[in-house]
Design a protein around this nucleic acid. Structure first.
Lengths: 236, 236
DNA sequence: AAGTGGTCTAGACCACTTG
DNA sequence: AAGTGGTCTAGACCACTTG
């Protein structure tokens, strides 16, 4: 009476190979048995043996090449993947979100902005400045420029109900996003808006984002988050 | 004379489905043709049609369930994945890396450290403090506590040649890593060590890491990086 | 020439959901 | 009972690498 949980055969083969690797019997660079060899060894069709190898390839444990075979890869550098916290979404989920619109206007692109937006100097642009709050406390200062061709109604939205970013994601789903995160010191004016009064306060995480929508720049945004209310984390 | 790049049939089917989705013909929740339907429609065996659906499932475009069918999923929240820059590795690659050891000693765990290291108060610990430099300029201040049972020779290493983290990764490959990134202001002493003299300087990215090696805490480390010399970025 | 992985076929049985 | 996806078989042809 062994375990009656009949496992798929391709899984048995995968587990066999994984065990050989993790136990150190098959070191990095070792050639593992070919599809045909595994098929014979496990009394299985080649397609089933193939599936085991294919999935281990997809998972990055093996590297395969036609004519050569399948080889144990060296474990990837364990590069931590950090996920960006969406403080605004979190506040919304908690029902404590609100937004103050400081500016929502049409402007003309200066040289720097035009360059980033990939348009000509002097072209029309929408500009918005917002304070995002959770439980009445400012958690983010945002300045955003939007391409009016891609979001003509951007200025007409009521941003007490819908977050600007959420609105843009909705009407113009970004095809590409560029992101840079730095640490900065808030200016005196920014500190005032963020209600950071202490002398020791003012250290912020700054998020610079640029979004594309089908090969055109949709928006560039700079968001300032007080360090006490913003941190990144990850688990591996 | 059409394109002679004969594409695999499963790819043609994938592209067909992707086109229907991206063009908006098949909205989120739509049931896509079954394996059998696609097999007939494309004059292909069921296994080939299956492969197309399976890969789209793996890629997150479809969600499949036995007895029900395959359905268009809502696009995932496009959560940016940031990769942690390894300033030290970069400096090493450029051949400009050096390291000053400020401290390398055995200490006894105080309450806070013992808690984080998951050991008892008063147990022996290795402590190291380092300044990492690129081209002679400090790029990171690091303080690390190491479990001596897992890295008994930690204090004996020559850290002018091998980076402490690289040494630990080598002798005790971490099974899990916890990471927290915050923005902070360097203390006066830290600013001195980092050669941050200006009044406006001192804003830093702080990386708190905790590494496990087979269920035991291997190390906890706090690294301080001047903001001007450290930023995170990602592309999607 | 023999072996490798990549693609593909035309069948099969299964557990699962639905009417 | 008919349809779905999940697993599996025993064949096939291909481009590719190696001796």
């Amino acid at each position: 009476m062994t375990t009656s949980v009949k496992l798929p055969r391709f899984l048995l083969i995968k587990q066999f190979i994984e065990t050989q690797i993790s136990s150190g019997k098959w070191l990095v660079g070792t050639r593992v048995p070919s599809e045909n060899e595994l098929a014979v060894r496990f009394s299985v069709s080649r397609m089933t043996a193939r599936r085991a190898l294919k999935e281990l390839d997809d998972e990055g444990l093996l590297s395969r090449s036609p004519g050569l075979g399948s080889f144990v890869t060296k474990p990837k550098p364990a590069t931590p993947q950090i996920n960006l916290p969406d403080v605004i979404e979190a506040a919304q989920a908690a029902g404590s979100y609100s937004c103050q619109t400081m500016e929502a206007s049409a402007v003309y692109a200066d040289a720097g902005t035009a360059d980033l937006m990939e348009i000509n100097v002097g072209e029309s642009l929408y500009k918005g400045r917002f304070i995002h709050l959770a439980e009445g406390i400012p958690i983010q200062l945002q300045e955003i420029y939007v391409n009016p061709k891609l979001a003509p109604a951007f200025l007409k939205q009521n941003y007490e109900k819908v977050v600007p970013d959420a609105y843009l994601d909705w009407i113009a789903p970004p095809s590409q996003t560029e992101l840079k995160i730095t640490a900065t010191m808030a200016t005196a004016s920014q500190k005032r808006k963020l209600l950071l009064t202490g002398e020791e306060e003012g250290v912020c995480m700054q998020l610079n984002m640029r979004k594309w929508c089908s090969d055109a720049v949709l928006s560039i945004s700079v968001a300032i988050n007080p360090a006490e209310r913003y941190s990144l984390s990850s688990d591996i």
